[in-house]
Computed example of a mutant assay.
Amino acid sequence: MTRHVLAAALALVFLAGAPAWAEGEPPVAETITFVVSTGFWEEPVEEGEEATAKQETAGATKPAEMRRGYYKLIAMRQPDGTAEVHLQQIEATSSGPKIASSTVLDEFSAMKPYVTDIRPENSSGITTQPGLFATVYLKTDPKAAEPESWTVLIDDLGEIKIERATN
Rank of each mutant, 00 (worst) to 15 (best):
residue 1 M to Q: 00
residue 3 R to M: 09
residue 3 R to A: 08
residue 3 R to K: 10
residue 4 H to K: 04
residue 7 A to M: 15
residue 9 A to E: 04
residue 10 L to D: 08
residue 11 A to T: 12
residue 14 F to K: 08
residue 15 L to P: 02
residue 18 A to I: 13
residue 20 A to F: 12
residue 20 A to C: 06
residue 21 W to F: 14
residue 22 A to W: 09
residue 23 E to S: 07
residue 28 V to P: 01
residue 29 A to Q: 06
residue 31 T to R: 10
residue 32 I to L: 10
residue 33 T to R: 07
residue 37 S to F: 13
residue 37 S to G: 08
residue 37 S to R: 10
residue 39 G to C: 05
residue 40 F to C: 04
residue 40 F to R: 14
residue 43 E to G: 08
residue 43 E to D: 14
residue 43 E to V: 15
residue 43 E to Q: 14
residue 43 E to R: 15
residue 44 P to I: 08
residue 45 V to F: 03
residue 46 E to W: 04
residue 46 E to H: 11
residue 47 E to C: 03
residue 48 G to M: 12
residue 50 E to F: 11
residue 51 A to H: 10
residue 56 E to T: 07
residue 57 T to L: 10
residue 60 A to C: 04
residue 61 T to E: 12
residue 61 T to D: 04
residue 63 P to A: 07
residue 63 P to M: 03
residue 64 A to W: 05
residue 64 A to Y: 02
residue 67 R to Q: 15
residue 67 R to D: 11
residue 69 G to A: 12
residue 70 Y to V: 15
residue 70 Y to R: 13
residue 71 Y to Q: 06
residue 72 K to P: 02
residue 72 K to C: 06
residue 75 A to C: 12
residue 79 P to Y: 00
residue 83 A to K: 01
residue 84 E to D: 06
residue 85 V to I: 13
residue 85 V to Q: 02
residue 86 H to R: 14
residue 87 L to Y: 02
residue 88 Q to W: 15
residue 88 Q to P: 03
residue 88 Q to H: 14
residue 89 Q to I: 05
residue 92 A to Y: 01
residue 94 S to C: 05
residue 94 S to K: 09
residue 94 S to M: 09
residue 95 S to F: 02
residue 95 S to Q: 09
residue 97 P to Y: 01
residue 99 I to C: 05
residue 102 S to D: 14
residue 103 T to G: 02
residue 103 T to K: 09
residue 103 T to Y: 01
residue 104 V to D: 02
residue 107 E to P: 04
residue 107 E to I: 11
residue 108 F to P: 00
residue 109 S to A: 03
residue 110 A to K: 10
residue 111 M to W: 02
residue 112 K to T: 01
residue 114 Y to T: 00
residue 116 T to M: 11
residue 119 R to F: 10
residue 120 P to N: 10
residue 120 P to G: 13
residue 120 P to F: 08
residue 125 G to A: 05
residue 125 G to Q: 03
residue 125 G to P: 02
residue 126 I to P: 02
residue 126 I to C: 07
residue 126 I to F: 07
residue 126 I to T: 09
residue 128 T to W: 05
residue 130 P to L: 08
residue 133 F to W: 06
residue 133 F to C: 11
residue 135 T to Q: 13
residue 136 V to C: 00
residue 136 V to D: 00
residue 137 Y to R: 12
residue 138 L to I: 00
residue 138 L to R: 00
residue 138 L to E: 00
residue 139 K to S: 01
residue 141 D to T: 01
residue 143 K to Q: 15
residue 143 K to P: 03
residue 146 E to K: 14
residue 148 E to V: 14
residue 148 E to Q: 15
residue 149 S to I: 13
residue 150 W to M: 09
residue 151 T to M: 07
residue 151 T to K: 08
residue 152 V to F: 10
residue 153 L to N: 13
residue 153 L to C: 11
residue 154 I to E: 06
residue 154 I to R: 14
residue 154 I to M: 06
residue 159 E to C: 13
residue 159 E to L: 06
residue 160 I to P: 04
residue 161 K to S: 15
residue 162 I to N: 11
residue 163 E to A: 15
residue 163 E to N: 11
residue 164 R to H: 12
residue 165 A to P: 05
residue 166 T to Y: 12
